[in-house]
Each structure stands twice: as C-alpha cells, then as structure tokens.
Write a protein that binds this DNA or RNA. Sequence first.
DNA 1: AAACGGTTTGTCACCGGTGTCAAAAGACTT
DNA 2: AAGTCTTTTGACACCGGTGACAAACCGTTT
Lengths: 356, 356
Amino acid sequence: MTVNGNSAQGHAAPTINDVASLAGVSKKTVSRFINNSPMMSEATREKVSVAIDTLGYVPNPQARALALRRNFMIALLHDNPNAKTVVNFQKGVLSAIRDTELALAVRPVDRESPDLLADVESFLTKQRPLGVLILPPISERSDLVELCQRLEVNYVRIGSTPLDTSEHCVASNDRQIVCKMVGALIRAGHQRIGFVRGPEGFRSPIEREGGFMDALSAANIEFDPDLIYRGNYRFESGVLAGQQLLNRETRPTAIFVSNDEMAAGVLHVAHELGIRVPGDLELLGFDDTGTASYVWPPLTTVHWPIEEMGRLAALKLVPEFVGDGAENEDLNAVIVPSHIVERSSAKLNLKDAKLL
Amino acid sequence: MTVNGNSAQGHAAPTINDVASLAGVSKKTVSRFINNSPMMSEATREKVSVAIDTLGYVPNPQARALALRRNFMIALLHDNPNAKTVVNFQKGVLSAIRDTELALAVRPVDRESPDLLADVESFLTKQRPLGVLILPPISERSDLVELCQRLEVNYVRIGSTPLDTSEHCVASNDRQIVCKMVGALIRAGHQRIGFVRGPEGFRSPIEREGGFMDALSAANIEFDPDLIYRGNYRFESGVLAGQQLLNRETRPTAIFVSNDEMAAGVLHVAHELGIRVPGDLELLGFDDTGTASYVWPPLTTVHWPIEEMGRLAALKLVPEFVGDGAENEDLNAVIVPSHIVERSSAKLNLKDAKLL
DNA sequence: AAACGGTTTGTCACCGGTGTCAAAAGACTT
DNA sequence: AAGTCTTTTGACACCGGTGACAAACCGTTT
C-alpha cells in the first residue's frame, strides 16, 4: 500500500472544498494553512492538517497560478554553446527542487537575435515563472536583468565572477583558480607558456585571462604576445590555436587553454604534428565537463562547479520552496569554489604554493 | 516602435473582457475566436481579430490551464546518462515549439528508484502537461506508458526501434545502420572484428548488437565470442573493454563499439598500449554527440539524429500548436534516418554496398 | 404570418484557488 | 458585565478563461 489514497474516490482529485468541509472550516482557512499563514490557532491548524492528510489533498498549481498571477515554475534562460554545462546545471537545479511542486522550464535563446528581449518578455509575461536562472554568457546582459526587474520576475545570474548582489548571483572565481593552476605549472618548471583565450565580449574569458596574467606576473615572467591565440571556446578554434602555436620554431613548453573543448583541439594538432603530450608539451584546460577525461591524454584542468552552482542558484531563487533541509545553507555565499583536477596532460607543483 | 502596444495602458495586460468590449461581443465569442471554433460568422471573426491586434491581447495560459485542466507545457522525461543526448533532444523540441506559447519542462527521473512511478504520477497530476516526451531508456518501460494512459496524458516515446504506434513513437533504426557500417568495414578488409556491447536490459544495445551480427552473417563470418565485451555505455567501461580486447595475443583488427564514450575509452587504452589507430586497429563508434570529434583520432561513427527526433516528437505530441509551417510534414513517419560519418578512426568501403 | 431548422451569439455557472474586509471569538480592562 | 483591543475566521468577489445550454438570428417552408 503506497502513499496515495485518492484513487479510491472515483479518481477525482480532492479540492480545497473537500478539505474544508471535512475539517469543518471555510476554504479560506484551508488556504491559510496551505500558505502557512501565522494567523491560525493551533487547534484549527491541526484539524486542517488531518483533513489534508486523510484526503491526500494536493493544491492545484494552476488555480494558484491564476489567483497569484505566478506560475509554479522556474525558468532556465541560456544561450550556451556547451551542452554539458547546461545539463549539469539543470541537474543541480533539479536536485534542489526535486521534492517541491515546482517545474523547471528550459528556455534557450539566441544571443545574436535582435528579438532576444522581445522573446524573453513574451515568455516571461505568458508563463510568469516564479523566477529565472540566467546562465552565462547572457547572464552578463544588463538589459535582460532590467527586463526581469520591470516585469517583477525574480532572477539569479550565474557568472565567472560576481555580477550582482548576493541574492541575485552565484559565481565561480575563475581568475583565482586559474592563477593558482598556472602558478603550479610555473613552479613545475615552465617559463614559456602559451595561452588560448576565449571569445571577445564576455566575462569568463577575461577572468581566465586575468588569472593567467596574474600567475605570470607573480612569477615575474614577461608574457610574449606571440604566445596568445584568441579562440571562441569551440573545438575547431582549438585546432586553429594549435596550428598557430605549435607550428613555430620555438614552441611553448606548456599551454593554458581557456576551456577543455579548445584544449581537445590543441591536443588534436599536437598529435598530428607528433608532439608528445606530456613530454614535449603540457596542456591545461578548464571546465572538466566530460571532454577532459575522454581525450588522450586526459586533461589536467579546473573543475568548474556548475552543478553545485545550479543547486545554490535554485536555493537563492526560491528559498521558500526548498527550505526543508536547507535552512542552514548560507544563502549569502556567492562564490562556489572550483578545484584543480590533475590528470595526465600536465604535471603541476601544487605543494609549494605560497599563501594564496 | 516595436510590436507591443500594451505598456501604454498603465501596464496591465489586456484581458479577454477588454477585447470583448472593444469588439462589442461577449467574452465567450472571443474565446471561440481564440480556440478557432468554426461556429462564427466572418464578420465577427474579423471584428474580434482587429480588437485583439489593436490591444496586443495574449490569452492568459494560467487561466486556460485552470479551465481546461491542462497546462500549456510539454514535459521531457528522461533518465539519460548522456548529457549531449538530452540537450540535443531539447534543442530539437524547442525548435519545434519556439513560436508557440508552450513551455518545455524537464523532468529527470531515477530509473533505479522504486518511487519512479509515484514520482512521475505526482508530477503529471500536479503539472498536468499537455503531453510527455519519453527518452530512452525509460521509454521502454510499459508501466510508464500505462500511467500516461491512465492519467490521460498524451505521450511520445523515443527509441532505437519502433516501440509503439506511429502517433506515439519516434525511432531511429540502429540495427540497420550498424549493419550497414559494419558491412562497409568488412568490405574494407576486416575479418576479425571486436564488439563492445551496451548494458543489459535495454533495447538500443540489443539493436546495435543485432546490426553487428547481421553484418557478420551477411558476410559469412563466424563471430568469435571472445571478441565481445559487455559494457555499460560509460567511458570507464570502454577502458575495461579495451584492456580486455587489446591485451590478447591475437587482437581484433577492428572494433565496433556501441557508443562513442566507450569508444573513447577503448582509444584511451590503445594509446596506452602504443597501438596505432588507425593502422594497428580501426575503431567504430555510435552516437556522434561531440565526443566522436573531440578525441584523437576522430571517430568514424553513426550520427544518431536525436535532435531531429526531438523536433518530430514535439510535432507528433502537439501538432495543433506547431501546425503553422508543419502541416505538410509526415507525422506518420516513425523512423528518422541515421547516417554514417566517416572520420579517421576507421576506413570504410561504403561504395560496394550491395542493395540494402 | 407563423412555424421550423440551422447557425451564430450570449448568459451564467464553474475551474480551484486567493484578496479584501467584515464578523466572530478571545483576551484584557475598567 | 460591558467595553475595547487583538486575534482568528468566514463571505464573497475575483483571477481569466471555458463548458453547457438557452436565446437570438436567419433563411425557408407552409
């Protein structure tokens, strides 16, 4: 015998009226119970609670949505080239809202489209989600945020660095972790280090570049501008980067690539040129969303905690729904720490790190 | 000046009553227009249409959801180990419903959990989606389908082979395409071919195995049972497969691996053992969701058309919403054709194929 | 002109909750 | 015991649509 008891009653789901008459109160009182209003005596609270349990009553979200002008749904807005990022983030969000009545709607948008704002506005006004989660890179667009504010839709932005106040933002600290990893690479003996950058116009490439440069200047290494390649985070551009950086007479002994997919592209070229990795060349990636462990050799990289960020973002967006086990979480935390995963593509010297 | 005109009116969205009074008709008539009921004179249809346009009226989905006991949302039910599959499927679905008022809700479930059915039932009764899309492997579970039928929720199942009637199913034909690819491998000269199978208990591994065996028997090659390894579709199990199949005195000259992630694992081992691919060994994968092109050498594989399957599944699930450009699609089609992508990990002889 | 069948339109209750505000019930004074 | 203030409860309209059914309209027929 399982938890559910309502299928006996000819299969009509019990309504608030059923509960009200069974408990001998008005439906407004039941409504108060549902929304745990403080203005209730313990006695009636108990009566209603019993009635709800015996009927197996569950409030109808559509009716509440109409009355409250708010759908019991949170939306995920993204324009993300990386599937794994999106899915892992979804996993985090869903682990947070698993036992709630909330649904998660995904809404991919087209960053390039001039209708982006109109699209999102129509989505928000039609679906009226409780709130939206905005993934990078569009999380950086202030016009989107202003739209949310105007439409009075709560939001949480995800970023590679804090983009907003703590209740509206979850971030990793890419700059710091990259600095740490590249620092460990330098301490392992490298001086001539290449850098493959991400696309222009977004924040995470800037952060990762900042971390790279920080590490170099901390070690008093002057950066050779010939050793930089500007990619777009895609595998193909990693191939181009590899062709440019590895086909020169004096190759770098190591390359930090701003994400794993491009690192896979560089690796591809290294193989074609017969350059041994590691050995002739060491390679550092960023993201750790699968690709890093599927290539040969597996990449030393930064694990970007996107799943955990999803979980935290959901907690911040709708704390009142996920409160159960999470009251003691620190919802003011903005930074979710990343960590370095040392695999075969590069040897690091993590021990001798000076104080951070 | 953009399309929207309602923000002038103090920002309250126009309701059906506004439209009704502007058009000089009752709100029921407007409702008829919205649901394009046939019982309307051309004259009133025109009046209402004009009123809707001038006000920029959009029906409130929550209200309709309440009245119709149906949420304007389709749900994606999955328990899929492969992130790319899920995201690409989502992309297909969203390309179909982009211009509709529909939302897409994702609902990952836990195949192992004894509460799976209860979970899904609670989700379906609470959210009351228009319909659900069920991804493999849980698309094979008949108890889920019976649940949908009992709750009167429309559904479309995705599979590697037709699982249901044409209105409830979209499928690839894994067996046929694998047979074709392995046949081309045989014609390229291989006789001793290894096989890495997917997990027990699901359909797609069976189909892919069937295709492999078909190709062998069509060429009158007897299969050596020592050349099979049973994996679970994950990278790690590909590594184990590689260790077993490649550490023997007489190695296979080629291996067909039932998915790309495991193929990446086999490749990993080949590199460790210094086995050249191609050259000493040729490798065939299946899926083509990214991994295949990010490894070295890039894999010859089958492109599994999961995105297109998503699009078609959405069309079948809610044809009345996506009808616009799609009337002329064949919604009776069940099989979405796959195709072979020849990259570097194996040379095929596709030309000399006999008739299929 | 009245009766008739078919089409188009409107009325009103209803979907299942919530907001407003007034009434009822308790607690506390005097 | 009556008066006052505070807490708890209920009546009723409302959120924005749809369904059932009745009314109005229209062109024919008798």
